[in-house]
C-alpha cells in the first residue's frame, strides 16, 4: 500500500513552478506484510507510531483499497465491501468509538443497528440484555450519543458493534483515553466475547497490558513490514536474555547477591536481580540453599521493555 503525496520546494519560484508541474512522491505505508489468522485467534498487532498498523486494519476492513498484493478476509476481498462481508466484521476505533447520528439515544441507535444488520428480534433482545449486563449500559440507554463521555462512548461503541455478533473484530487502540476501570472492563469484555463466540480478533494497542492480557500471539510491524509473527513469550525470550528474580531475604549479604546477578532494586530486604535466562535455575537453587529466603519469584522482563527494544533494535 502506497500513498501518493504532493511535494514541492519552498519559496515563490518553487510554488509557481508546482502550479504547472506538480510533483509527487510515493509514500510506502505497508509493504510485504504477510500473515494469516485462524478462526477464533486473538492476535496483538503492534508497532511504533507510523508503522502501518492502522493502515493494515483499514485495508482488512475494506476502508482502503490496497495498491498491490492480496487480501482475503472471511473469503472476501475487503475493498469490495460486500454487504455480507460487512455484516460479519466490526472495526472499533478508540479514537472514534461511535459514528453516525449523535443526536439519537443509545437505545435508538441500537435499534437502528438491529434493522441495519437484520438481527432477528428475539436475538436482538437476548444480545441487548447480555450487553447491557456486561457493559453496564442500563444508565446509558436513554442518553444521547453526543452527551456521553469517552469511556461511555467506548462501551456504547462495543455494544453497537457486537449486537450483530461479528465473526471478525478489528480493535484499533480500544483503550485509548480510558481510565483504569474502563480499560479493565474493555479487556475483560473482549476476552469473554472472543471465548464465548470464537470470534477472530486483531488488536492494536500501545498499552502492552492490553496485548499481554488478551493476545497469545503477536504480529509486530515496523516500517510497513512484519518484523515478528509468533508467540508473545517467545518474543520476550528472544529479545530479553534475562529474567528477573524477586526475592525477600532480610538477612542476605549484598555481596553474595551481586555475584548472583545484577541488582536492579533493593529495599526492606526485598531484592530484584537480573539473571541470564540460562542461569536462572542454577542461581535460584543456590540462593535457596545458601540464604534464608522468605519469598522468591521468577519474572519475565516487563513487556514494555521487550517491545521497546524490538522497536529500537529490531527483532533480528
Amino acid at each position: 500500500m502506497t500513498y501518493r503525496a504532493p511535494i514541492r520546494g519552498s519559496g515563490w519560484k518553487e510554488t509557481l513552478s508546482s502550479v504547472f508541474n506538480r510533483q509527487y512522491r510515493e509514500v510506502p505505508a505497508v509493504q510485504h506484510a504477510s500473515f494469516a489468522l485462524a478462526p477464533g485467534e486473538v492476535v496483538g498487532f503492534i508497532g511504533p507510531n507510523g508503522a502501518g498498523k492502522t493502515t493494515t486494519m483499514k485495508i482488512l476492513s475494506g476502508l482502503l483499497h490496497a495498491t498491490s498484493g492480496q487480501v482475503q478476509v472471511l473469503g472476501y476481498s475487503p475493498w469490495q465491501r460486500r454487504s455480507e462481508f460487512l455484516r460479519q466484521i466490526a472495526f472499533i476505533r478508540g479514537s472514534q468509538p461511535v459514528g453516525g447520528s449523535q443526536e439519537l439515544t443509545v437505545l435508538d441507535t441500537l435499534q437502528y443497528q438491529r434493522l441495519l444488520y437484520e438481527v432477528p428480534p428475539a436475538e436482538y433482545r437476548r444480545n441487548l440484555d447480555e450487553l447491557t449486563e456486561l457493559l453496564d449500559l442500563k444508565e446509558l440507554l436513554q442518553r444521547q450519543l453526543r452527551a456521553l463521555s469517552l469511556g461511555e462512548k467506548m462501551r456504547a461503541g462495543l455494544a453497537l458493534s457486537l449486537l450483530y455478533r461479528p465473526a471478525v473484530m478489528f480493535l484499533d487502540e480500544p483503550t485509548l483515553g480510558l481510565d483504569v476501570t474502563g480499560a479493565t472492563t474493555m479487556r475483560r469484555f473482549v476476552a469473554e466475547y472472543a471465548e464465548q463466540t470464537a470470534a477472530t480478533v486483531l488488536l492494536t494497542s500501545h498499552y502492552m497490558v492490553d496485548v499481554a492480557s488478551l493476545c497469545p500471539r503477536l504480529v509486530l510491524i515496523d516500517k510497513g513490514q512484519v518484523q515478528y509473527d509468533g508467540k508473545l513469550d517467545e518474543l520476550a525470550a528472544k529479545l530479553s536474555p534475562y529474567k528477573l528474580l524477586r526475592l525477600t531475604a532480610p538477612n542476605a549479604d549484598e555481596e553474595r547477591l551481586r555475584r548472583a546477578g545484577e541488582v536492579l532494586e533493593a529495599s526492606d530486604g526485598t531484592w530484584v536481580l537480573r539473571v541470564p535466562r540460562d542461569a536462572v535455575a542454577r542461581t535460584t537453587a543456590e540462593l535457596l540453599t545458601e540464604l534464608e529466603v522468605a519469598d522468591l519469584s521468577v519474572e519475565e522482563a516487563p513487556l514494555e521493555v521487550v517491545i521497546d527494544r524490538a522497536y529500537r533494535e529490531g527483532v533480528g
Partner: peptide, 13 residues
C-alpha cells in the same frame, strides 16, 4: 493477508 472464511452469503442487491 488472510482471515477465516465466511459461512453464508446473502443476495447482494
Amino acid at each position: 493477508m488472510t482471515m477465516p472464511a465466511a459461512s453464508y452469503r446473502r443476495p447482494a442487491f
